Simulated scan of single mutants.
Amino acid sequence: MDDKHMQIGEVAAQTELSLRTIRHYEETGLVIPSARSQGGFRLYTETDVARLMVIRRMKPLGFTLEQMRDLLDATDRLDGDNRLDALEREALLERVRAYRQTTAEQVEKLRIQLARAEDFAAALSDRLEQDTY
């Protein structure tokens, strides 16, 4: 899966993130390119792209860079370290569960906001229809 390396432009197109945003996430340590080309260009793998997609999904839900870093750290450790003892594993899973709960709460808030926005758009349409007669 990680054999193919992509340059930043391809990653930007795939993730719908700007080059500037990807570079910012690199500067803040959220995602580090897996390699560099001989010319010094950033090279990314599918794993790097998946990490950027997690970040992209967290951003509109109001998560901070620190929260993103914390969740990514927890999932990285769960995915990569088979030497975790049961207590460490449970603590990491609890962190992920907390993010799942916060995400569910944020999604519900967004649903309410969307419903209100749709009601408002409908009210404006109704108003305009009244003036066309």
Rank of each mutant, 00 (worst) to 15 (best):
L19H: 13
S18N: 11
T15F: 04
M6K: 13
D131C: 09
R77T: 14
D3M: 13
K59I: 12
D2K: 10
R51V: 10
D85C: 14
L128M: 15
E94C: 02
K59R: 15
T45F: 07
E90G: 02
D70K: 09
V107R: 06
D119I: 01
S18V: 09
Q7F: 08
T47K: 14
I22N: 01
L87D: 14
L124P: 01
E27T: 11
L78R: 09
R111I: 05
Y25L: 10
R56T: 04
A98D: 13
F63T: 00
D126V: 03
H24L: 13
A13K: 15
A123C: 04
T45Y: 08
R56Y: 01
R77A: 11
D70S: 09
E10K: 13
P60K: 05
L17D: 08
D81I: 07
G9P: 04
R36I: 04
G40Q: 01
T103D: 03
R89H: 05
A74I: 09
E27Q: 15
T21R: 05
R36H: 13
D73H: 12
M6W: 15
E88F: 07
S34I: 05
A35T: 07
T28N: 05
N82R: 11
L84I: 07
M58R: 01
K59H: 09
D81F: 11
D3T: 14
L52S: 01
T102F: 02
G29F: 10
Y133E: 09
D85N: 15
A86C: 01
L72M: 10
D79P: 06
V31P: 06
A35R: 12
A91G: 01
E94N: 12
D119R: 12
S34L: 07
V54Q: 03
V11D: 00
M58P: 00
E10Y: 02
L72P: 10
A98L: 12
V49A: 08
G80M: 05
Q38T: 13
A74R: 11
D79K: 06
R83I: 02
G9L: 06
V49R: 11
N82F: 08
V107L: 15
V107Q: 06
R69P: 01
T75M: 12
V96P: 06
L87F: 08
E16S: 15
T64D: 05
S125L: 14
D3H: 10
Q130C: 04
Q113C: 09
L52W: 02
M53H: 07
E90N: 09
Y133L: 08
Q7G: 05
A123D: 13
T45Q: 14
I32F: 04
A13Y: 03
D2G: 15
A98E: 13
G62P: 00
E10V: 05
A98I: 02
A115K: 13
L78F: 07
M53V: 12
F63E: 00
M68K: 00
A13P: 06
E118A: 10
